[in-house]
């Protein structure tokens, strides 16, 4: 018999996943304590905290994709984006708060990739929460030393004559990669173009999709 405990099987015939009943970590307990104290002292309300969580959850790579697609179709906007990516994002109506954003441009001879070796800095206010692998020790320690090997694992093989520029977000700035516009997109409108821009292509671990 594949599963011994027939009374513990789900209707699909597989065992139930065990409950995630682990104790809180030190930092989780501290976060709850500080949050409850802030509410108790009237610094913030529980509703304001919930609203901020909702606002962060509502952000997604689609926001960044729209910025990239605009840069692909509007040279003046692209120039503004490369000069001040925060201002350009705000100009498109994105509420990015205090985010200080730098856009780095991929070309035929340069490929950019972003990391935060010290923690998990990421342009959350434009792209939403980072993927789990972005925060992993493996990605953070390896991409600064062997970026080509890491990119290969993501399915991106770059020729030796393309220079890789790794960007370590060590302090106050955050980074977004402006990928190269794929060939064969001349007839697409901005919406169709944005659908080609993946999250990973804005981190630099991927390339945009090609139109089908």
């Amino acid at each position: 018999m594949p599963h011994d405990h027939a009374d513990h099987l789900s209707p699909s015939g597989h065992p139930y996943r065990p409950d995630d009943d682990v104790p809180l970590s030190y930092w989780q307990a501290m976060e709850i304590a500080v949050r409850e104290l802030l509410v108790e002292k009237g610094e913030v309300t529980a509703e304001e905290i919930a609203r901020q969580i909702d606002a962060m959850d509502a952000r997604s790579p689609a926001d960044g994709a729209a910025v990239v697609a605009r840069a692909w179709t509007d040279p003046a906007f692209k120039a503004r984006l490369l000069k001040d990516a925060s201002a350009a994002s705000r100009e498109m109506g994105y509420d990015i708060g205090a985010l200080k954003l730098i856009a780095v441009e991929n070309t035929a001879s340069v490929h950019n990739v972003v990391v935060c070796t010290l923690c998990s800095c990421y342009p959350r206010n434009l792209l939403g929460l980072p993927p789990d692998w972005y925060k992993s020790r493996a990605y953070r320690s390896r991409v600064v030393k062997a970026p080509r090997a890491v990119l290969r694992e993501f399915g991106v093989e770059l020729p030796q004559d393309v220079t890789i520029r790794v960007h370590d977000s060590t302090a106050d700035m955050r980074y977004i990669v402006l990928p190269e516009r794929p060939a064969g997109t001349e007839a697409l409108d901005a919406g169709a173009m944005a659908a080609l821009v993946t999250r990973d292509s804005m981190i630099g671990t991927g390339l945009p999709r090609t139109p089908t």
Binding site: V144, P147, R148, Q160, T163, I164, R165, V166, H167, D168, S169, T170, A171, D172, M173
Partner: peptide, 9 residues
């Protein structure tokens, strides 16, 4: 690749 670069703040 010796000529690849890393930028940091």
């Amino acid at each position: 690749t010796p000529g690849d670069t890393l930028d940091a703040e």
